[in-house]
């Protein structure tokens, strides 16, 4: 679905995406990393459970919501990868905070 034009030269970092360790380019966003890794979807919707991938890549659509380092509902297109980061798909509705 997506591919890299060039392998990350300079530094690469590794992140844990759904239990799989993937090498990604330092400085890129979580959304870019997940797309380049070939993810079929990055979240499911709260209403019908439909699968989604990032749509706008600029912080407007909120279709890239993921759970990053344990925090749900983060915009993956606005968060940069960090070594050791744990990234999970956002499944359905966020547990309501008290």
């Amino acid at each position: 679905m997506f591919r890299r034009l060039h392998e990350p030269d300079g530094q690469s970092v590794s992140i844990d995406f759904e239990g799989e360790i993937i090498n990604v380019a330092a400085g890129e966003t979580v959304a870019a990393a997940v797309l380049a890794a070939g993810a079929e979807h990055s979240r499911t919707t709260p209403v019908t459970g439909a699968t989604r991938l990032p749509f706008c890549m600029m912080g407007a659509c909120f279709d890239c919501l993921m759970e990053i380092d344990g925090i749900p509902n983060r915009q993956a297109c606005m968060v940069r990868v960090e070594n050791g980061m744990k990234v999970r798909r956002q499944e359905g509705k966020r547990r309501l905070e008290a």
Partner: peptide, 22 residues
């Protein structure tokens, strides 16, 4: 809303910021 549909601008952001293309 289907995965695989994206804005052209979004694809351009992927290209500029990460060198990632469809």
């Amino acid at each position: 809303t289907l995965p695989g549909v994206m804005t052209a601008g979004g694809a351009q952001v992927l290209l500029k910021s990460a060198g990632v293309v469809p």
